[in-house]
């Protein structure tokens, strides 16, 4: 590790964060429903749960909140986790398609009877749009501030849609751990957006040093 050796508090924070992300996945792994499902369904389902967990650390990395991770490293991890989220979405949709093509097509075409499908599809397109925006950042010729605003707005849509999607589903996730991770994801996103879009710009305008800024 090139960054300074993390002290005990930093390690505790990282450990706690990893535990918070792992808990809902591990608890879901004990669900009795898994025994009745095909491998594609189980893998597809867990890709979705993992995606939800990754949404907890993703804004924290973007804002550089994790102690012991300097700005550049934090943003590199933000990019890696972003790629992992994209991969999880692909495995999620692919696994569900292999399990039941008609149910998955209904969801993708927005004619599913389940109310949560539309939020899942919204989150999927939001993540796809984010990936495109990242990949085409230079070619789009957007000013950085514009690009950053669109990126933040897409992130907000993805997080809210994903949380609604997850909460309405009756499946392998245990109900309390699901609510806990969803509320944590919402809180992390809200705090980071407030910090990046309101507090840091205000402090900058007053000419006060406010730690690492977005640019």
């Amino acid at each position: 590790m090139a960054s300074p050796v993390p002290r005990l508090p930093a390690l505790l924070i990282r450990g706690g964060l990893l535990a918070a992300m792992a808990a809902p996945v591990l608890i879901a792994a004990t669900s009795p429903y898994l025994a009745y499902r095909s491998l594609a369904y189980v893998i597809g389902g867990f890709a979705g749960i993992l995606c939800l967990s990754l949404l907890l650390i993703q804004p924290l990395l973007a804002a550089g909140y994790l102690p012991g991770l300097v700005c550049a490293r934090s943003r590199r991890w933000h990019r890696r986790i972003g790629t992992a989220i994209l991969a999880c979405v692909a495995v999620h949709v692919g696994g569900l398609y292999l399990t039941s093509p008609p149910d998955t097509l209904d969801a993708l075409l927005l004619v599913s009877p389940t109310p949560f499908s539309v939020y899942g599809v919204l989150a999927m397109w939001g993540i796809a749009a984010t990936a495109l925006l990242v990949a085409l950042r230079r070619r789009l010729g957007l000013r950085y501030s514009t690009w950053f605003l669109v990126h933040n707005l897409l992130a907000l849509v993805v997080v809210i849609a994903t949380v609604i999607h997850a909460l309405q589903i009756e499946g392998a996730m245990e109900i309390r751990s699901k609510w806990a991770i969803c509320l944590a994801v919402l809180a992390a996103t809200a705090v980071v957006l407030l910090d990046l879009r309101v507090i840091r710009p205000l402090l900058r305008r007053r000419g006060t040093a406010a730690g690492p800024g977005p640019d």
């Binding site: 429903y33 009745y36 569900l96 399990t99 039941s100 149910d103 389940t114 949560f116 499908s117 309405q168 589903i169 009756e170 499946g171």
Partner: peptide, 8 residues
């Protein structure tokens, strides 16, 4: 019957 695709 068990929940399938999010609903029993």
């Amino acid at each position: 019957i068990v929940p399938n695709f999010g609903q029993p």
